[in-house]
Nucleic acid binder design. Structure first.
Length: 570
RNA sequence: GGUCCCGUGGCUUAGCCAGGAUAUAGCAUCGGGCUUCUAACCCGAGGGUCGGGGGUUCGAAUCCCUCCGGGAUCGCCA
């Protein structure tokens, strides 16, 4: 079903077009935009002033005079303010919104897109635990998944497992050299031996030959080497999965790079690229010329020892994905900008569909960039542990009378929510520096603010129910909702689906984070100024209770889209 | 050196792609509000050369050029 806001916008466009037509004016752009002065505003008078041989202010008035509105319009009033045409929604829009939220409940806000999407995110090398840089990928990726699902797409998520790269050769070698600490979470124990192995390889460069040997063996299918790679990867991935699950992130499948070697897909795609005539031999390595795509340097797709590279296997992986989805989306760190551009160009050159790539900039530490190899990182597990402890203290302070189980449950929701919100609220293209003080700060107007609004809505309904004042089946009249804060809240809720639509199109998840905060803000305004349970008249109380129920539904949907828990009490 | 991203009050940040009405919020600071549905809330105040300069335009945080600062990257790592 079309978004009410978009339907309103369409009606505004229609009304303006026909008004312009009656005035004999033409334009390609009505200059419609949301505005702080109206629900939507048009700047069209600026553009057409010259054509109409008039000044913008006068023209705006003439246009508004020429507008005719049908009886059932969602448009309320149209006014000029100087050269601007300000359009507000009408009662129909407000009433429809309430009705629609009650009907659609959990599904309110989406369902207007269709098609299959394969979205890849996180895909961190299994050489240690996820760190605070990786989870920016996970959180952006998972939020996008939730947005796209909400929009109506059939979304499958994948974590592409590097089980053949140099790092993994080092990890599997490390497991033979050093003792693996079974008492630790396996991804952390893997990092320990990986860091030791790197130090050892640095100290004695002759050992590097052993790593090269292992890479050749694994690619040629040596059973024992494959087994040892698999063991290393399995240990790391099992730990990574636990961390992701703790953050409400899950993947539908974990395709392994090696599968594309063993299926022969890598060799096939190399042949396809060769057939374009773009390849040449460069000191024994096979390289692709992408200069016509703007890449000065060639792309290596086969080493001089005949083994494949990450890029080659990634090409085969994307070919496979392209055959199974209408849209492919990859969430990648800024270090992948160049390589993903080359990947897209190569796919294009062989006539295959290209992925849409969402790039996020790095999270660094005050002392510099993070590195698993050097052991310079803050693990996601550490962050989650600390933030949940911090959250527990906050709950304990505010609700000392509640049982420990309640406190832990809320602390978990609030802590995880705070981490997810803090990360997703910032545009992906901003690079950030991790800071413990800020990461553990609950005073910011972030996830807890939104969760608290939800809990407040739940509490009102609970209280009304206890007093026998709440009957969810009762028919109400939405037109009794006339307070400014009530109308503002309803309008804000109405725009949820247009935000989902925008996010699904632009792949910018921070928009939904900002919307959710604004929604909570609107609810808090309503909460502050309008009594619900204690409202004097029965029919007004009933319609306000319905409004609270609507807010509960939309807040819950928004939180769900952010992957943040919605506590009924906190 | 080339290429890409970022630069908005003390700090964090929206708006920029599709240029227009007093530049968005939060934190911090200062002041006010709990006998009324949980104050993880609400109200108010101060605080901004939108990195610098130039250009396009009736109009630039937004588009173009240039410089400065930060991040990323520049074939057989991923």
């Amino acid at each position: 079903m079309l978004s009410l806001f978009l339907e309103f916008k369409r009606q505004v466009s229609d009304a303006l077009w026909s008004a312009l037509e009656s005035l004999g004016l033409e334009t390609g752009d009505l200059g419609l935009e949301p505005s702080q002065h109206a629900d939507i505003a048009s700047k069209v008078a600026f553009r057409l002033a010259a054509q109409a041989k008039s000044n913008p202010k006068e023209l705006a008035e003439r246009i508004v005079d020429a507008i005719e509105l049908p009886e059932s319009s969602l448009i309320g009033d149209i006014k000029t303010v100087g050269p601007y045409i300000n359009i507000n929604v009408g009662r129909n829009y407000v009433d429809n919104t309430v009705t629609r939220i009650l009907e659609e409940k959990d599904s309110f806000g989406g369902g207007f897109c269709e098609g299959r999407i394969l979205l890849e995110h996180t895909s961190a090398n299994p050489n240690g635990p996820l760190h605070v840089g990786h989870i920016r990928n996970s959180i952006i990726g998972d939020t996008l998944v939730r947005i796209l699902k909400k929009a109506g797409y059939d979304v499958q998520t994948q974590y592409y497992v590097n089980d053949m790269g140099r790092q993994i050769a080092i990890v599997s070698w490390a497991l033979l050299q050093f003792e693996f600490d079974r008492s630790k979470k396996p991804d952390h124990a893997i990092a320990d031996v990986y860091i030791r192995a790197n130090a050892s390889l640095n100290a004695d460069p002759q050992k590097v030959a052993e790593i090269d040997k292992r890479m050749q063996l694994v690619e040629s299918g040596d059973v024992e080497t494959i087994r040892s790679f698999d063991e290393a990867v399995g240990l790391a991935v099992s730990g990574i999965k636990q961390t992701l699950l703790r953050m409400n992130v899950s993947h539908d499948s974990f395709p392994h790079e090696s599968a594309f070697i063993r299926s022969g897909a890598v060799l096939r795609i190399i042949e396809e690229i060769k057939a374009t005539g773009r390849t040449k031999d460069d000191n024994g390595a096979l390289v692709v010329d992408l200069s016509d795509y703007g890449f000065e340097k060639t792309l290596v797709i086969q080493r001089s020892d005949g083994t494949s590279l990450y890029t080659t296997r990634d090409l085969a992986y994307h070919e496979w994905k392209g055959e199974r989805a209408d849209r492919m989306i990859d969430v990648l760190g800024a270090d992948h900008k160049l390589i993903s551009g080359q990947l897209k160009a190569t796919l294009n050159a062989i006539g295959k569909p290209e992925p849409e790539v969402v790039i996020f900039e790095f999270v660094s530490l005050p002392e510099g960039s993070m590195s698993t190899r050097r052991g310079k990182f803050i693990s996601a597990d550490d962050l989650l542990e600390q933030i949940e402890q911090q959250a527990y203290l906050e709950v304990d302070k505010r609700r000392p009378e509640m049982p420990d189980e309640f406190k832990r449950e809320v602390a978990s929701m609030v802590g995880i929510g705070a981490v997810r919100y803090d990360i997703v609220k910032v545009s992906p293209e901003k690079s950030t520096v991790f800071n413990w003080k800020e990461a553990l700060d609950f005073e910011k107007q972030g996830a807890p603010f939104i969760q608290y609004s939800y809990a407040r809505a739940c509490n009102i309904l609970k209280k009304a129910e206890e007093e026998g004042k709440w009957d969810p089946t009762q028919k109400i009249d939405p037109s009794l909702l006339t307070e400014d804060t009530e109308i503002d809240l309803i309008k804000k809720m109405a725009s949820f689906d247009s935000i989902i639509d925008l996010c699904a199109r632009d792949l910018k998840p921070h928009t939904i984070a900002i919307y959710s905060r604004e929604l909570a803000d609107s609810f808090n305004q309503f909460y502050r100024f309008v009594p619900v349970v204690s409202a004097e008249e029965d029919d007004i109380r009933a319609s306000r209770l319905v409004l609270v129920n609507c807010a509960k539904i939309v807040l819950s949907n928004a939180l769900d889209t952010l992957g943040i828990g919605a506590p009924e009490s906190m």
